[in-house]
């Protein structure tokens, strides 16, 4: 996943501690940025959930609670918002994650499915033991 090099791209980076309390900071930052860009109230709610799901996964699966930091990059481009959530954890195989059975709900396994439903594009780059980057893209509606 290349970092955007276009002139009009602006990047805001947040380094968050692996402490659950701070996921709300990722949401607050998101609200500020998405609001400035002109996303609708509904779209901002969707974006908040997506970024939280990715942060929660970075913390829960990326490594133990209260230890490692993880990073959130907000890349602003006039027609879209790109959010990368990066951790240094154990990594995983996206192909091996089955879609949840919605008729038979379980207590876990909803996060990635929710992200994919709410965002326009989702890409996961993950390697065993060298961490995960999940990139989520939402386009600004006209």
């Amino acid at each position: 996943m290349d970092v955007l090099t276009k002139d009009d791209a602006v990047k805001v980076t947040l380094t968050l501690p692996g402490n659950p309390e701070y996921v709300s900071v990722a949401r607050l930052t998101l609200s500020g940025i998405a609001n400035r860009m002109g996303f609708s109230v509904d779209a901002i709610e969707d974006l908040k959930v997506a970024v939280s799901e990715a942060c929660t996964n970075a913390m829960k699966h990326g490594r133990g609670k209260n230890s490692e930091n993880y990073m959130v990059n907000y890349i602003v481009n006039h027609e879209k918002l790109i959010i990368d959530v990066c951790d240094n954890g154990v990594g995983f195989q996206m192909d091996s994650i089955a879609a949840p059975d919605l008729k038979n709900p379980k207590e876990s396994g909803l996060g990635l499915y929710i992200i994919k439903t709410l965002m326009d594009e989702v890409e996961v780059k993950s390697e065993k033991n060298s961490g995960t980057v999940i990139r989520m893209i939402k386009k600004l509606e006209e």
């Binding site: 709900p105 379980k106 207590e107 909803l110 996060g111 929710i114």
Partner: peptide, 15 residues
């Protein structure tokens, strides 16, 4: 606000 962590807890209550 709620996300999968909260939804999971509600599914737990159902169980």
């Amino acid at each position: 606000y709620i996300d999968s962590t909260g939804l999971g807890a509600l599914i737990g209550v159902k169980g």
